[in-house]
Write a protein that binds this DNA or RNA. Structure first.
Length: 923
RNA sequence: GGGCGCUUAGCUCAGUUGGUUUAGAGCGCCUGCCUUACAAGCAGGAGGUCACUGGUUCGAAUCCAGUAGCGCCCACCA
């Protein structure tokens, strides 16, 4: 019963029951048969699977609200709207979590052993994993939960193996020894994308390498060449010659196996082919020539550390210099390093190496140097480039169709500037390192025969070697990069490689909404996999949403502790408030800022709006009552100007919102729905219609008003439903329905409002707009002239167009009531006499409010005079200041400027007041 | 170093192909209202030389060039 409705919306009491109701009604589940046989258009979004151990943060809150808005909207349009949910096993992240867990028991994963550790992780995932999906329900997400998938599910694992084998057989997966990004804490390889740069103010150290004694002549001539330039080449006190190389990582010099110069560098031509005595190591290493060396940088001579630097590795490959790995996986100096440094952490070794150079008189100084240091995206440890054997995917062939898809518009990006970013990456794509030295993940489906050394790549675990028959097979210990399963997500979740009904009905999907950070990690690779394995892109639109930041503009993150818990927001303000706030804050292409220290300030707009909807609903239900309303066709002739106006506005708004949704301009959807609802329906229509809804009102007028109000309210509830699903459903369920026609649908989602040309009425919009203008102006003038709240004023209009006169007649009582107008009269020319207020409407009508007898003119005269006097005083002060030459010449320019502004402002106000005073003094 | 983007009210931001907006909204601020849907509200109001400089145009917040500041992405010259 409407009368029982709370004057304030209490989201916590309505949201959970509504969600259950939707679930029970099977709202979210979509049957492939409805597409394949029923002919319904599908609309498919696959969720970016959150990490299985993740807890909901505002980034999820935003992204999943966006997806839910799109899914609900398409569902209302009658599409087979499917949102497929699931979670990602998140190799490193999850393994780290479990390792930390067992660390509390004083154990390491090695203590448990691989199998037990993996079991333990599964146990952890089964118990606590996927909680984030339940959290999504709290914000109203309507995923088809029956289809929940996990990237380590048997089905998805099968897809992973299938893909690995196919790519291997095609020659697109290979194994090789390369420099990769290595995390010495996680003890695994990282892809390029997983090593994130971090600009720091570091140091560039200059190291002197003595030249071999037989190089003396060459050194001397080179010395002449550089003309003792800087420190490039020189002589030590003991007579030996040296050359200088620079590095930001001195400890790596222990692994140097060459020094390189540019072959075209005339200065050092005589040195090429020579040797230097590498300090601290007792090793003698060659001087090689390589185009890579930049003659302009530093001395133009580079130390070459093939095992610890990707560029050095490539140079070494070209010239046949061997690599020397001087670190352990933990980035501790290994037995390949000189004894004095063995066992030292890389950063301690750095200091020790510098110190040793100083002691040997070989230190050439250091300079500040800004450069990027790559860090592990999971644990923030400084990444160590490391030589190791890994599995790679050859990306160039895969990238071709994916690049073309962007270029020809098959896949579009919102906002479209990401198109360029995507294409640039695709054009410069590098091979993907897919092996990880972890235990948690898809084991690489490769076995090595211990008998004959054969490498076996297979879909099913083999029992014995194909070539020698030995059953002594050892599986590759590594697992695959997490993204190697998630790049298959849009089709693996539907049962690929089987050609299932789901796959036929729901691939390709339509929209992919995600954070820009994972454009390369995931989105680009999904598009590549889509083409490679399904022959077409997995979706047609990529929506890259805003980044959620705090008030200082910092990205919200766990480590900064500046996050907002969406569940806390739901608890305090409701899911509708959360959703409305983030959608209206997230204009395409801009970030959103929220204040983690003041949730009230951040989410009040959404909360207030939901409450406004609630109260307008409360009013509607209370005044319309329980009696059935008449269908529009029956009251059509009784519609009044304001009725025609609001119905026209509804139709226009429905059309406009639909267009904005099609363009993914969700911010504008929220803004326009807000404006229609609050600024037009609540502020104007409800106020205009109030008297007509009273029991004692004219019956025909009342029925027209009831029908119009219910229709308009029904329409805006539906339009708002994708954004604020709960409050709209709750109210819609209570709305009365036309007599004789049973409620056609049980849930609000069954229909999306569309434009109705029969309701659009430009004349009504223009005329009611003018009525609003009049009311607003009268109110404004009343305030300006201090007309007491309760007093009525008369209004005289001149030059009103005929159509406006009709509008005035039909809304006469509204105008009197809303603007407290006594008599409203029309005159052919304005009465010049008498004290009063003047105004002009936008349609050209002039208005005059006689104020004699309404306000105390004498009092107003006195008030104005006093104000003028006060202003005159201030003006005098400012002028005196400006006439003071000392002030003008000595004060800062902006202060003088400010004073001048003050002067003109005062002058302006003065003129205004004087004119007003004239009116009150009569002719 | 290369690429991209941003700079509009005290704050957070809109402003969709240059022209009906007097450059808008929310929050904040000022004034008056507990008017029987809503004080999480109503009515009215103050506040902006649209970063700067120059150009194109009948007309520029909007297009072009340059300058300054900020941010992001890519590549890593050791």
């Amino acid at each position: 019963m409407p009368t029982e409705m709370d004057p304030r919306l209490n989201p916590n009491s309505i949201e959970p029951p509504l969600y259950s109701r939707w679930m029970e009604a099977g709202e979210f589940s979509v049957d492939p048969a409805s597409v394949l046989e029923g002919g319904r258009d599908p609309f498919v979004i696959v969720i970016p699977p959150p990490n299985v151990t993740a807890v909901l943060h505002m980034g999820h809150g935003l992204n999943n609200t966006i997806q839910d808005v799109l899914i609900r909207w398409r569902r209302m349009q009658g599409k087979a709207s499917l949102w497929a949910p699931g979670t990602d096993h998140a190799g490193i992240a999850t393994q780290n979590v479990v390792e930390r867990l067992i660390a509390k028991e004083g154990k390491t994963r090695e203590d448990l052993g691989r199998e037990a550790f993996v079991d333990r992780t599964w146990e952890f995932v089964r118990e606590t994993g996927g909680a984030i999906l339940d959290q999504l329900k709290a914000i109203g997400c309507t995923c088809d939960w029956d289809r929940t998938r996990f990237t380590l599910d048997p089905g998805l694992s099968r897809a992973v193996r299938e893909v690995f084998v196919r790519l291997y057989q095609k020659g697109l997966i290979y194994r090789g020894e390369y420099i990769i990004n290595w995390c010495p804490r996680c003890l695994t390889a990282l892809s390029n994308e997983e090593a994130e740069g971090d600009e720091v103010e570091g140091r560039l150290y200059h190291l002197r390498y003595p030249l071999a004694p037989e190089m003396t002549d060459a050194a001397a001539s080179a010395f002449d060449g550089v003309q003792a330039a800087a420190e490039a080449i020189g002589q030590l006190p003991d007579g030996r010659w040296y050359l200088t190389v620079s590095t930001t990582r001195p400890e790596t010099m222990l692994g140097d196996t060459a020094v390189a110069v540019n072959p075209a560098d005339d200065r050092y031509k005589s040195l090429i082919g020579g040797e230097v005595d590498l300090p601290l190591t007792g090793r003698r290493i060659p001087i090689i020539a390589d185009e890579y060396v930049d003659r302009e940088f530093g001395t133009g001579m580079v130390k070459v550390t093939p095992a610890h630097d990707p560029n050095d590795f490539e140079m070494a490959q070209r010239s046949g210099v061997p690599p020397l790995d001087v670190m352990t996986p933990e980035a501790v100096m290994s037995e390949n390093a000189p004894e004095a440094f063995q066992g030292m952490d890389r950063f301690d070794a750095r200091k020790a190496v510098v110190k040793a150079f100083q002691e040997e008189g070989l230190f050439g100084g250091e300079d500040p140097h800004t450069h990027n240091i790559p860090r592990c995206y999971r644990c923030d440890t400084v990444v160590e480039p490391r030589l190791s054997e890994q599995w790679f995917v050859k990306m160039k062939p895969l990238a071709e169709p994916a690049l073309k898809a962007s270029q020809d518009g098959t896949v579009t990006f919102v906002p479209d500037r990401w198109k360029k970013v995507y294409e640039h990456w695709m054009e410069n794509i590098r091979d993907w390192c897919i092996s990880r030295q972890l235990w948690w993940g898809h084991r690489i489906p490769v076995w090595y025969c211990q008998g004959c050394g054969e490498t076996i790549v297979a879909r099913e675990d083999p029992d014995s070697c194909r070539s020698c028959g030995s059953d002594d097979l050892q599986q590759d210990p590594d697992v695959l990069d997490t993204w190697f399963s998630s790049w298959l997500w849009p089709f693996s979740i539907f049962g690929w490689p089987e050609n299932t009904e789901d796959l036929k009905a729901f691939y390709p999907g339509h929209v992919l909404s995600t954070a820009p950070e994972i454009l390369f990690f995931w989105v680009a690779r999904m598009i590549m996999a889509g083409y490679e394995f399904m022959g077409e892109a997995p979706f047609s639109t990529v929506y890259l949403h805003a980044t959620v930041r705090d008030t200082k503009g910092r990205k919200m993150s766990k480590s900064l502790g500046n996050g907002i818990d969406p569940l806390e927001v739901v608890d305090q303000f409701g899911a509708d408030a959360l959703r409305f706030t983030v959608i209206s804050a997230a204009a395409v292409g801009t970030d959103i800022q929220l204040n983690p220290d003041d949730l009230e300030a951040s989410f009040a707009p959404g909360r207030n709006f939901a409450n406004k909807v609630w109260n307008a609903g409360r009013f509607t239900l209370m005044t319309v009552g329980d009696d059935p309303i008449r269908p529009l066709s029956e009251v059509r002739d009784d519609l009044e100007l304001s009725d025609r106006w609001i119905l026209s506005r509804l139709s226009v708004t429905a059309e406009s919102l639909t267009q904005e949704l099609e363009k993914f301009r969700l911010h504008d959807v929220a803004e326009k729905a807000y404006h229609f609802f609050w600024g037009e329906l609540a502020d104007w229509y409800l106020e205009l219609v109030k008297p007509r809804l009273r029991e004692d009102a004219d019956a025909r007028s009342r029925e027209a008003a009831r029908t119009t109000l219910v229709l308009a309210f029904d329409g805006i509830l539906r339009l708002l439903h994708p954004i604020t699903p709960f409050v709209t459903e709750e109210l819609w369920q209570k709305l009365p329905w036309p007599a004789g026609s049973p409620r056609p649908e049980s849930l609000i989602s069954a229909q999306w409002p569309v434009k109705d040309p029969a309701l659009e009425d430009q004349e009504a919009e223009a005329q009611l707009g003018a009525v609003q203008d009049l009311i607003t102006q009268v109110r404004s003038l009343r305030k300006e002239y201090g007309v007491p709240e309760g007093a009525e004023v008369d209004v005289v209009l001149t030059g009103a167009p005929t159509s406006f006169k009709n509008a005035l007649a039909s809304e006469d009582s509204s105008i009197r009531r809303l603007a407290r107008v006594g008599s409203l009269t029309m005159e052919s020319s304005l009465n010049e006499g008498g004290a009063g207020a003047h105004g002009v409407l936008r349609n050209g009508t002039e208005l005059f409010l006689p104020l004699e007898g309404v306000i105390d003119l004498e009092k107003e005269r006195v008030r104005l005079s006093e104000e003028i006097e006060r202003l005159a005083g201030q003006l005098k002060g400012v002028r005196a200041k400006l006439q003071n030459e000392n002030f003008v010449s000595r004060a800062p320019a902006e202060v003088v400027e400010r004073e001048r502004n003050k002067e003109s402002n005062f002058q302006e106000q003065m003129t205004k007041l004087q004119e007003k005073l004239k009116v009150f003094q009569g002719p």
